[in-house]
């Protein structure tokens, strides 16, 4: 996490609903909500260009100025449009700087794996983020995983990863695979075995089977 918390100013949004949210977006704002700490949720508007710029850089904790009242907030969720291109809504949760929170940290795989030089070998990394429990001040930007020593068949599990701080607790399943080098040919045989029907073949009809009984 960067040493200074990002400042973000917000205005209260008095009229809520999809129609008013669309008007906010057209005016260059991003509709958002702040909740948590047993206080009433507050609908707000932040500047879309500024907020999305910080979010895309990986910032998660903000020092938010909501109509004069300043508080620390944590980015909890993002809403996307149907094409998944534009961020249309953001959820923020109120936090204390010494509070422990559950969050996600991006995984960054570094190094050229030795096993990838073998023909047909590919690296699979099904998980791109790790779920962690840590204090707000210890938020990691990225968790760096060195894959340069990996051979074909090797796998790195979530439990193998050294977390940047001792106080961090891993919430992701320890057995979850972070990176694995597999031979593509073997994978294809396993995957293609089912569901292939010749042209003209008809599937079994469950309803007809019941009628016959």
């Amino acid at each position: 996490m960067s040493d200074t918390t990002t400042e973000l100013s917000a205005q209260l949004r008095e009229r809520t609903g999809s129609r008013y949210s669309q008007r906010v977006r057209k005016a260059g704002g991003l509709p958002a909500v702040v909740y948590g700490h047993k206080e009433e949720p507050v609908s707000i508007t932040v500047d879309a260009h500024t907020a999305i710029g910080y979010i895309s850089k990986g910032e998660k904790v903000f020092h938010m100025d909501i109509a004069g009242a300043k508080q620390y907030v944590l980015l909890k969720d993002l809403g996307y449009d149907y094409l998944g291109t534009n961020i249309i809504h953001a959820d923020f949760a109120r936090v204390d700087m010494n509070e422990r929170v559950d969050t996600k940290a991006r995984l960054k795989l570094v190094g050229e794996a030795v096993g990838l030089k073998t023909t047909g070998a590919i690296m699979m990394h099904p998980i791109t983020e790790l779920q962690l429990n840590c204090t707000v001040t210890n938020f990691p930007d990225d968790i760096v995983v060195d894959v340069s020593d990996m051979e074909v068949g090797d796998a790195i599990h979530a439990s193998d990863i050294t977390l940047p701080k001792d106080t961090m607790v891993l919430l992701t399943d320890p057995g979850a695979i972070i990176a694995q080098i597999v031979m593509k040919a073997v994978q294809e045989e396993e995957g293609e075995a089912a569901e292939v029907g010749a042209d003209g073949a008809t599937p079994e009809v469950i309803a007809e089977k019941k009628d016959a009984e």
């Binding site: 089912a194 569901e195 029907g197 042209d199 003209g200 599937p203 079994e204 009809v205 469950i206 309803a207």
Partner: peptide
Amino acid sequence: MPPYKIPKRVKHRKEFRRVRDRKA
């Protein structure tokens, strides 16, 4: 002809067309 993917089992042989002008 190459083998195309089709379901193995279905509940009914035929289906209505249904509306398709929705977003994903």
